[in-house]
Amino acid sequence: MGCFLSKRPKHTAGYEDPTLLAAETPFNVSEVEALYELFKKLSSSIVDDGRIHKEEFQLALFRNKNKRNLFADRVFDTFDVKRNGVIEFGEFIRALGIFHPNAPVESKIEFAFRLYDLRQTGFIEREELKEMVLALLHESDLVLLEDVVETIVDKTFSDADTKGDGKIDVEEWKEFVSRNPSLIKNMTLPYLKDITLAFPSFVVTSEVDD
């Protein structure tokens, strides 16, 4: 067994300058630095490589690295802008920025649309909506008769698909959310409002304690 004399690098690959990330997001520099501590914790829970793997994301969300869920998969994939199977620091901060209470509502609505556009066709299709309802019921151990599920999906679709072409485009989605603002309630995390106060334990003196 050898011992490591060399000092670990302060930042892992994929690290981005907090000043630049703060300029692009509702976070200030110290909040980005605080979130880096959370990111380090999440990204080292299974594989310590400075990137959040899907299993690490599942572990953080469900306390179980093997618990898969359609919606967690979609959140992960929507964070993973580079589509390389991992969430890097910059991706993490930019995506979380959308969940900030001060982020523009428009960006929350668009993010939700991307989440629900399962096959990334630019539309939410009826089959996708039904698949999500079934996934939610399965996740919640709820059983509904097939025709009840069809009724829920049909009713929602007839409300949202105002053009009546069998799919919900982003304009219809925006209009639908404006009529039903509670649909994007889960796109705001109040915790992010002042993360350095809410999570003082994340604020470590990483820049000065070395």
Binding site: L129, M132, E139, I152, T156
Partner: peptide, 26 residues
Amino acid sequence: VAPVAMNAFELISTSQGLNLGTLFEK
């Protein structure tokens, strides 16, 4: 609320997989 009267997206938004708040819990 009877599920049949619910908006499907409202139902979906209750998914645990969409609740990122858990990331911030110790």
